[in-house]
Amino acid sequence: MITLLLVPLLLPWAAPALARRVPARCSPVAALWALTVSAVLLAGGSVAALGTLALTGLLKIPAFAALGDLVHPLHTPSERVLLPLAALAAGLLTLAALTLGLSLVRQSAGLRNARAAADRRPAAGDLCVIDSPRPDAYALPGRPHRIVVTTAMLRSLDASEREALFAHERAHNSGGHHWFLAVAELTAHCHPALRPVRDAIRLAVERAADEAAAGTVGDRRLTARAIARAALATNGREAGRPTVTPAATTGPVPQRVAALMAPARPARRAVPWIAALLAACAVLSCATAATGAVRVHEDIEVAQGETGG
């Protein structure tokens, strides 16, 4: 039973290597869905496994056993490792809940502030311009959806590049991309191995909006140029700000630009094997977690004195 419950905890470690390869092999929207659904299943499996382990350990304690109407002591295999494992599982679950709660508070405060800032300025259509020397642009979900752009960003792009930028942000809003980002954030708190998957989801979200923008303005190179120019302008101004450690590999922005510079790929029907493998991992994770939970449930029923199921 314990080995069964360890599988959903170990499987997510296989996800980052797979997730990194998915965007190169699927259309951006397909990649976005494949990554997000897999991340949800993997996160669900690992939380269920942790919960089952913690519950089993809890029922070994006489006070909780009485609360659970256990008339016999709960019999589980590998008694000796169970208690430390259960304690660890309970600790990890608590930690995940705490960091998730903290992130939830910070994110919603950030969103509220961005919303308040946008609502202070008169809008034209869905555009809200903020007079600032720092180039920045983002999609602001909510009612109504907005796109927020600083004057410095507008001035570093020409008219057609601005149209590409707007098309990109509108694609975020119409595609409901903030939901994918929120789910990615949620799953990243459930298992540390899902953090790289969150980054892959973020990249997939940007790629989906890039391709939508290229379709709207009808020019892939123009869209690529707008992204490159905006990125250079943004970073040129950021010299005085705390910098994150430079990535060893090529960062997301050059990947996006390079993908747009390459010719559009014809749509493929077949599911790429890498996405299928990731999905298989995710399903396996949920299946083992569910089987483990059912076994524990049976053990509990026996301990509750029920016979014959």
């Binding site: 990109h168 929120a182 490159a228 990125a231």
Partner: peptide, 26 residues
Amino acid sequence: SDRATVLARFVDRLSPDDEEVLRQLL
């Protein structure tokens, strides 16, 4: 620092290598 997760930004921070790649592409 977590803002990127709620707000889909147009572009993110670049590493010096990224900057070089972008300049060449442009």
